[in-house]
Design a protein around this nucleic acid. Structure first.
Lengths: 210, 210
DNA sequence: GCACCTATGGGGAATATCCCCCAATCGTTC
DNA sequence: GAACGATTGGGGGATATTCCCCATAGGTGC
């Protein structure tokens, strides 16, 4: 059987080296490319058509979720195995909804990563870390607060809030009315369950939304 | 000559594996221990007395700066080489003031890490990444804002700000006038170099002040 | 002793924020 | 085609924030 072909995407050379070393210890996996940015990752996947893309969420240019989205819409057959330092709910939800085959956190034991790569390569879906699984339980278990998901526009506004912008600034930046920004603020507060822009910003930073 | 003995402290197994692999490729370096928490790192350094401690700043239990401080006050001869994903000024300053031998960012090329370990082991001081060096230039160059350090009271106020409290709330909580809180806010903004409570809160969360 | 920092407070005014009210358009979904 | 969500916008008003002005009292340092 031919080996599983893997592309690594992570902005830290050390992390890439670590994973590459890890995967190449086993005979049935071959690392066929490394990318340090989202753009590179997309290009590489197109060029070398790997079986699995090990995709870090914290890339400098494009967000991991966007990379996944682009691959999904381009009907790429690559299996995406997301890798993140954080177990933040928003990312996980988004990723899995975008059809990622799995989601691992970096605290994971090295052997688990090998297992996961092998698993998704052979078609397993929903390969997630134990801690992620625990978190997903809470979503299913009653507190399925639909509101958690911000719209694209709301996320954009929130990003500016975190950047310390005033409603006026944000309105100018987005080219829409300040009144509309106020509307978004209200929606954001309601969805995040907070009562002020400061709390919203703190929430966003803590959850690693940006 | 006996090899350089190194202890790795990082909460991500993958990162540890990567660095270990990297360092063990060269004959004059030996990894004699791995820690995933600050406590473990402290214990390991005492037990195996390595030459160099490669210390990640984002540990789950104790902050990297505290680990450095404890080692410093216990007169440990270990050379601390700080490792962080971020080039944030506060950490760097604190670390270097605590006598860390160097500060690397994870974006660093693998070979540089080997060089840095070797450098500090042989007594070099102030081994920093190029990007860090660039940042330090701005500190030296005139804008030597000593004010960066907040007073105890200011920290207390800032903590409440992060908690989403209004000036009125904070005044009530601290049993002082709202007007005084306003004064503290102005001082905090000036010292942190921000222009609003939102920015101050975001700064505090990002720097892990609480 | 005098300068300096920390902590405390008042007055006033220009903005900014937040929370209600109201509404239209466009796309998807049932 | 009707209902829903996403996006856009207006009006009005109660608070909150920020930035100036001013001040006093206590501690530390040289």
């Amino acid at each position: 059987m031919s080996p599983i072909r893997v592309v690594l995407a992570d902005d830290h050379p050390v992390v890439r080296a670590g994973i590459r070393n890890l995967l190449e210890k086993v005979v049935d996996i071959e690392v066929v490319g490394e990318a340090s940015t989202g753009q590179e990752a997309l290009r590489l996947v197109n060029d070398v058509t790997p079986d699995v893309l090990l995709l870090d969420m914290e890339l400098p240019d494009i967000k991991g979720t966007e990379v996944a989205q682009k691959l999904q819409s381009s009907k790429s057959p690559v299996k995406i195995l997301a890798l993140s330092a954080y177990d933040d709910g928003v990312y996980i939800r988004e990723l899995l909804e975008l059809g990622a085959a799995g989601y691992l956190i970096k605290e994971e034991a090295p052997e688990t990563i090998v297992e996961a790569v092998r698993g998704v390569a052979y078609g397993e879906q929903g390969w997630v870390s134990r801690r992620i699984a625990a978190q997903m339980v809470s979503w299913v278990r009653g507190d399925e607060r639909e509101g958690l998901k911000l719209t694209a526009r709301e996320m954009e506004v929130l990003k500016h809030v975190v950047g310390g912008k005033t409603n006026q600034n944000i309105a100018a930046a987005l080219g829409i009315s300040e009144k509309t920004i106020e509307k978004y603020m209200e929606a954001i507060f309601a969805k995040l369950g907070v009562a002020s822009r400061v709390e919203a910003a703190v929430y966003a930073v803590r959850e690693g939304l940006f």
